[in-house]
Design a protein around this nucleic acid. Structure first.
Lengths: 137, 137
DNA sequence: AAGTACTTTATAATTATTCTAAACTACTTG
DNA sequence: CAAGTAGTTTAGAATAATTATAAAGTACTT
């Protein structure tokens, strides 16, 4: 698989050694151009079911957090008990279906603020999270 | 205390009987026009420290959720392990200081979307959460 | 080839939240 | 106003997400 070098580089850049387990995680996260949303538990299940590799939750947590810190993953800000992550790290917003906890990407061009307010004194804006909550009618 | 009737009404409207404990919760949440942000734990501590009333956490959870359901409180969508609530139920957004988990209201007039994207087929927009993440510089 | 530093893992610990069932209280109605 | 009943409070247990730990295993340097 020629993606190996890419995975290895991503891991190294994140300060992690390329191990069998971490490469499997990469395979799920970065093998396709299609992006997706997941919880740690989702991810762990996919690795087990699709790749037949049973990885300790702690390893998945550590790796996902390292990728998030490095910017290879983004965390999505929603009011739920679990953390959701996104393999799409470009600036964009989400629809969130309250009933089934489904997240849907919104193209950046479709959402934009009219004007950005001045941050409080001594504070700098890092990024802006926009969630449009929807419900099936 | 002439606010008693107001508290009682809010509780009744939320489907709850006015009990000693719930009235104390109201006293903290609704006694002043100033709004504030809190976690369940914050709220419980304030009630104990300021009003000298020790209330079971379960009671606080139940009451806060009933108020949220009725619309007397709003939950704020941020990516943290705890749930944050807001006594300001008008449409508005927040600055969120990542380092100290501090929330600051933004006047609604200062934040507005240029255009609202069409929701996915069969779904209806309920509300929009906007968080501007900031960091001390 | 061997040593060191980093990893994985199972398991325990922590934290937020929800559940439960027994004791208690508000409210209705006679 | 004295029950009765339906809703409440509470401590503690149960759940669930996440983080910490420490022993066994692996990647990488030399």
């Amino acid at each position: 698989m020629s993606n190996l070098n890419i995975y290895t580089e991503k891991l190294r850049e994140s300060g992690l050694r390329p191990t069998r387990q971490r490469l499997k995680i990469c395979e799920v996260l970065f093998s396709t151009k299609e992006t997706f949303h997941f919880t740690i538990n989702d991810l762990n299940k996919i690795i087990e079911e699709k790749l037949g590799e049973k990885i300790s939750l702690a390893t998945v947590y550590n790796t996902v957090h390292a990728f998030k810190k490095k910017g290879y993953l983004k965390e999505i800000a929603i009011a739920t008990d679990k953390s959701y992550f996104d393999t799409n790290t470009s600036t964009h917003s989400h629809f969130f279906d309250i009933k089934n906890s489904e997240l849907i990407d919104i193209d950046i061009n479709q959402v934009d603020l009219k004007n950005i307010p001045n941050p409080p004194a001594g504070k700098k804006i890092k990024n802006i999270d926009i969630i449009i909550n929807v419900e099936s009618e």
